[in-house]
């Protein structure tokens, strides 16, 4: 089994053996995080540009740590406040980065398809999708499956995962459904119909309108972030009503399998999609997800950027 990818734009590019190779690699990387000196020289001399057109703290910092632990030179190109706000096109930004010698570009953008657009324009740099619009967020999906996988004896076969929340506006859910299914898990979606695409089937998951039924027997319950402005758009009435019906509290979690994992991509809204008792409870993997994120991104960068031949 060898790794054939230079880029990662979405999970659907990966086969199951490739995904498993990456997860195995992430285990080694996570071991590194426990060492007193966390740095290895795998990407020494490589230039990685973090090109973030949207504010994102966790994903950017997670990538930046992964890049630094692998010894890469890192540039954070905050697109607001640089040439893009002066009206430079994305095409010109791409060519500029390449002229500066970027070996990889990690891109976060509010518009779907931007990572694919960059891959088309860049001749030699690797492109990593750090989230495009409400379309895809493949590294989040990889870290999510990795977190569950390592807690379940490295197998997700036959697991039931309930994803609850704002599916319509979520970049996480589209990639997560693909990733969980690729490894043999079943995914149920729940949330108000106004926060669902009309055709949920297209995502490859079943929609269950009743949140209690959705989490019934689930091995993991994954809460999506509710952005408070959605209430103002009239998609649901109030945060309070949302919390009472869809929020993960101890009562709802009692319907899931005993010891079911609680997950969230962060940042969490306590008292909206998740109650503090659940977020901080013994089955919460939320902080483990954060740590896994660094390891998984290290594994990905290492595999895609020629680490195998080093």
């Amino acid at each position: 089994m060898s790794w054939m990818h230079r880029h990662l734009l979405d999970v659907d590019a990966l086969s199951r053996p490739e995904m498993e190779l990456l997860l195995d690699q992430a285990v080694h990387m996570e071991d590194l995080l426990d060492r007193p000196i966390k740095k290895v020289p795998a990407l020494r001399g490589k230039l990685v540009v973090n090109l973030f057109f949207e504010p994102s703290t966790r994903t950017r910092v997670s990538f930046e740590l992964a890049e630094k632990f692998l010894g890469a030179d890192v540039v954070n190109w905050a697109a607001s406040g640089s040439s893009t706000s002066k009206g430079e096109t994305l095409r010109d930004t791409a060519w500029t980065l390449e002229a500066m010698g970027a070996d990889a570009v990690v891109v976060r953008h509010g518009m779907p398809g931007v990572p694919w657009y960059l891959r088309e324009k860049l001749r030699k740099a690797s492109v990593f999708n750090a989230g495009d619009g409400a379309h895809a967020h493949p590294t989040q999906a990889l870290l999510d499956v990795y977190t569950v996988w390592k807690h379940c004896n490295r197998s997700l076969d036959g697991l039931r995962v309930a994803i609850v929340g704002d599916v319509l506006h979520s970049r996480v859910v589209r990639s997560d459904v693909q990733a969980f299914r690729l490894l043999g898990a079943e995914v149920v979606l729940a949330g108000p119909r106004t926060l669902m695409p009309l055709e949920t089937d297209a995502l490859g998951a079943v929609y269950e309108p009743d949140p209690v039924k959705a989490v019934e027997g689930a091995d993991a319950v994954y809460l999506l972030r509710i952005q408070k402005e959605r209430a103002l758009e009239g998609l649901y009435p109030t945060d309070d009503e949302y919390h009472r019906r869809w929020g993960a509290d101890e009562e709802l979690m009692a319907r899931a399998k005993k010891g079911a994992f609680v997950m969230h991509p962060g940042p969490i809204n306590r008292g909206v999609e998740i109650a503090s008792a659940v977020a901080d409870g013994p089955n919460s993997l939320i902080l483990d997800q954060v740590r896994s994120g660094v390891a998984v991104r290290m594994a990905l960068l290492y595999l895609c950027m020629g680490g195998m031949e080093a």
Binding site: P112, G113, H135, A136, P197, E199, T200, L203
Partner: peptide, 15 residues
Amino acid sequence: TEGRCSALSGMRGFP
């Protein structure tokens, strides 16, 4: 278009 394309792309759909 609203449907598969909006569901999978995450973009707003024309119903």
